[in-house]
Amino acid sequence: MLSQKTRYAIRAMQHLADRYGEGPVQLGEIATAQKIPAKFLTTILSELGRAGVVESQRGRDGGYWLASPPQELTYGNLVRLMRGSLALVPCASRNAHERCSNCVAENECRLRALMLKVRDQTADLLDSIHLSDPIQPPSQVGDSTI
C-alpha cells in the first residue's frame, strides 16, 4: 500500500497540475482542497522542492507550482521519489534491493519472481501515466477509470 505521505504528495501534485501555468498556488488552498494537514503538506512540498519537482516563492503572493510541465511528470517517478521503490518486497526493488533474511535463495524464490513481474508491470503502468493525463474518479467502489 502507498503511505499516507505518498498519497498526499500525489493529491498535492494533481492539484498543482490542474493549476499549472496560473502562477503560485498557496499552501492553504492545496491543504483545504485536498484535505491534507497543512504542517504535513509543508514537509511534503519541501521534500518535493529539494527534489526539483516543485518550486516555491515566499510572501503574500507566494505559493507553489510545478517545476516542469505536468506532461513531463509521471506517477511512477512521483511514487519512487516519495516511497523509494515500486517493489512490494525488498528483494524485488531495483534501487533499494535487500535480500530477505528469512527466505530461500533468491534464484530459487518463486515469490520474488512473482514480485519482480508485479514491480515491472506496475512500473510500466505508472511510468506511462503523466500528471497531465485525465483521470476520472470511479463511479463505484471497485471500478477503475483512467
Rank of each mutant, 00 (worst) to 15 (best):
E98Q: 15
G63R: 02
D120Y: 05
A31D: 12
A105P: 00
A105F: 01
I44P: 02
I129E: 01
I36R: 03
M82K: 00
L86E: 12
G84E: 05
V79M: 05
T122Y: 00
G63T: 04
R94H: 05
Y75F: 13
R112C: 09
A113H: 06
Y64V: 07
V118C: 08
M82H: 04
Q136I: 03
S46R: 10
M115G: 02
G49D: 15
A17D: 12
G28I: 04
A92R: 04
E72F: 04
G52Q: 13
L86Q: 08
S101H: 07
A33E: 13
C109F: 00
A12Q: 12
M115T: 00
G28S: 14
P138I: 01
P70I: 05
R80A: 09
R83A: 15
A17M: 08
P138H: 10
I44C: 08
G23W: 07
R60G: 12
S56P: 01
Q34F: 04
L45N: 06
G62Q: 08
I30Q: 12
P24N: 13
K39L: 14
G84C: 04
K117T: 01
Q26M: 11
L131Q: 12
Q136L: 13
D133S: 15
L27G: 08
H130Y: 09
V53W: 10
F40G: 03
D18W: 11
D124E: 15
L86W: 01
G76Q: 11
L45R: 04
E98M: 12
Q136G: 01
G76C: 11
S56L: 05
A105W: 01
E72K: 06
L116T: 01
P37G: 12
G76E: 15
E29D: 15
S56Y: 14
V25T: 13
A31L: 08
E106K: 01
L88R: 05
V118Q: 09
R19P: 00
D18S: 14
R50Y: 04
Y64H: 14
D124R: 10
L45I: 00
P134Y: 01
W65G: 10
W65N: 07
A105D: 08
G76I: 02
E72G: 02
P37I: 09
A87R: 03
P90K: 15
L86S: 10
E106G: 01
R19K: 11
V25K: 00
R58E: 07
L73N: 08
E22T: 09
I135Y: 00
T32M: 11
C103T: 03
V118G: 09
D124S: 14
E72C: 07
T32Q: 13
R50M: 08
L16N: 09
R80I: 02
G28M: 12
Q71D: 15
L73V: 10
L48V: 05
L114A: 10
L116N: 12
